[in-house]
Design a binder for these strands. Structure first.
Length: 267
DNA sequence: CGAGATGTTCGGCT
DNA sequence: AAGCCGAACATCTC
């Protein structure tokens, strides 16, 4: 479920636990969520630690605790962060549960495509420092984006927008939104796009990301009604721009929603 | 009952 | 060799 703005929203759900100690922990250490790490060590390190601050970057989140402890969380397809009452009793999909005096911080993920990582270091962990430039940063530039498109020129543009090394935080609905706003045919190889279209992709990526942050990222409110966003979920919807019935097809294994009139293969 | 779901990763192929 | 593609992952809902 979560892309850039949803991730930012969920990160802030745990803000109610800032500056407070973890009094107890419950986790499902054998679950896929914890693949590749030692849950006992995480548990030992976080018990009694204080949540100091947090940040989000694309679809990644990082929570900083006292004792040089860093908890990384990816929400996968169905992950959520929740804040529940102190006496909360975890259900079967509540894979990491951090009890505090005033509330209980919960990572819930039924499908378990999400992931927990854990690091001990004074500074931010190395994997975090290596993340690509955020969409809102000056380092996310047109030349960089253009070079990225060039390096994937044989792949359909829809698939390329989903690659996190070039477009960190973009997910399925945002990719479709960008292409619909830019009036670009989603199946086309990105090497065939002219300079104006490539520039439009860059501009719309920033615009969609910024606007999503101000609505979904702020309070989970809907982005503008003029977007494809609110129309794409129900099948048989007309294009909000030209009223032509929207099309659905599969690109790179993902459902893609697009307008056959606005997003033509040629032109 | 089968299909599909707002994501990533791996392995095989070119 | 880099990059493209399909399958797999685990569970729930329509």
């Amino acid at each position: 479920m979560p892309e850039l703005a949803e991730v930012e929203f969920y990160r802030k759900v745990w803000d109610c636990g800032l500056k407070q100690k973890i009094t107890a922990i419950q986790l499902h250490g054998e679950k896929r969520i914890f693949r590749g790490l030692n849950p006992a060590q995480l548990e030992k390190k976080l018990r009694g630690a204080t949540l100091l601050d947090s940040r989000a970057h694309g679809k990644q989140m990082l929570f900083h605790f006292s004792g040089n402890a860093w908890l990384g969380i990816h929400l996968g397809m169905t992950g959520k962060l929740l804040a529940n009452a102190p006496e909360f009793s975890p259900g079967k999909h509540d894979h990491l549960v951090l009890f505090q005096q005033k509330q209980t911080l919960v990572f819930y993920d039924p499908r378990q495509f999400g992931r927990i990582v854990f690091d001990e270091s004074r500074d931010e962990p190395a994997w975090w420092k290596k993340l690509p430039p955020p969409l809102s940063s000056p380092a996310f530039s047109f030349p960089r984006t253009d070079a990225f498109l060039q390096s994937h020129r044989k792949a359909p543009i829809k698939s390329v927008l989903l690659l996190q090394d070039g477009f960190p935080g973009i997910g399925n609905w945002m990719a479709d939104e960008i292409l619909w706003q830019a009036k670009i045919y989603p199946h086309g190889a990105c090497g065939n796009l002219d300079a104006a279209k490539r520039k439009m992709i860059f501009k719309k990526t920033r615009a969609v990301a910024n606007a999503a942050m101000k609505t979904i990222g702020k309070d989970f409110s809907d982005p503008p009604k003029t977007w494809l966003f609110s129309h794409r979920w129900k099948r048989k919807s007309p294009c909000p721009r030209c009223a032509m019935p929207l099309k659905f097809s599969e690109i790179g294994g993902r459902t893609t929603c697009w307008c056959p009139a606005c997003q033509k293969e040629k032109g």
